[in-house]
Computed example of a mutant assay.
Amino acid sequence: QRIINSVRHISNCAVLGVEPDTDYNRTVITIAGAPESVAEAAFLLVKKSIEEIDMRQQEGEHPRLGAVDVCPFVPLKGVSMDECVDLATNLAARVAEECFVPTYLYGHAAKNDAKHLLSTIRKGEYEGLEARLSDGDTPHSEETRYPDFGPRSWNDVVAKSGGLTFGARGILVAYNVNFDEKDAFVAKKAGSLIRSTGRLIKQADGRRMRVPGMLPMVQGMGVTLEAHGISQVSMNLRDVEQCPMHVAFEACKSIASDHGIEVPGSELVGLVPLSAMLESGAWYADESTTDEDSIVVAAIQGLGLDQLGRFDPNERIIEYALKGALNQ
Rank of each mutant, 00 (worst) to 15 (best):
P212V: 12
C84L: 04
Y106R: 01
D286C: 11
A34C: 06
C99K: 02
L16H: 02
F166H: 05
R310V: 15
E61I: 10
C71V: 09
W154N: 13
T197H: 00
E292S: 07
T224Q: 10
Y320I: 02
S294L: 11
R316K: 15
Q58T: 03
V68S: 00
A42P: 04
V15H: 05
C13G: 03
V269R: 06
V233L: 12
Y24R: 05
S37M: 09
L45N: 08
G309I: 13
K160V: 11
T22I: 15
G198E: 02
P313L: 14
T138C: 15
E19P: 01
D205P: 04
S288T: 14
V173T: 03
A299Y: 03
K48M: 04
F179V: 01
G107C: 13
V28H: 01
W283K: 09
D286S: 15
D205R: 09
V247N: 03
E130N: 11
F73S: 00
H116R: 15
E292C: 08
D86E: 14
L200C: 06
I53G: 06
V157M: 13
L76H: 13
E142Y: 12
I194L: 07
H259D: 10
R122D: 01
Q219L: 14
E287I: 11
L326R: 11
G170H: 08
N25G: 03
A190H: 07
D156K: 11
V74H: 04
D113C: 10
K202N: 05
E97I: 01
L45G: 08
A321L: 02
Q242E: 12
K47A: 15
V218Q: 05
L278G: 07
L172M: 15
G191E: 03
I10M: 12
K182V: 02
V158I: 14
S231K: 00
D258I: 07
N178R: 04
E36W: 00
W154K: 14
I300S: 06
D291R: 06
F179T: 01
T224K: 08
L44S: 09
V218F: 10
I4V: 15
L76I: 13
Q307E: 12
R145I: 05
A92L: 03
V74S: 06
E142A: 15
V269K: 04
A190E: 07
E52Q: 09
E287V: 10
A325Q: 07
E287G: 14
W283V: 06
K188V: 05
L91R: 03
G220P: 00
V7E: 02
T103S: 09
E315D: 13
I318T: 13
L305K: 01
G304R: 04
Q242T: 05
K182Q: 03
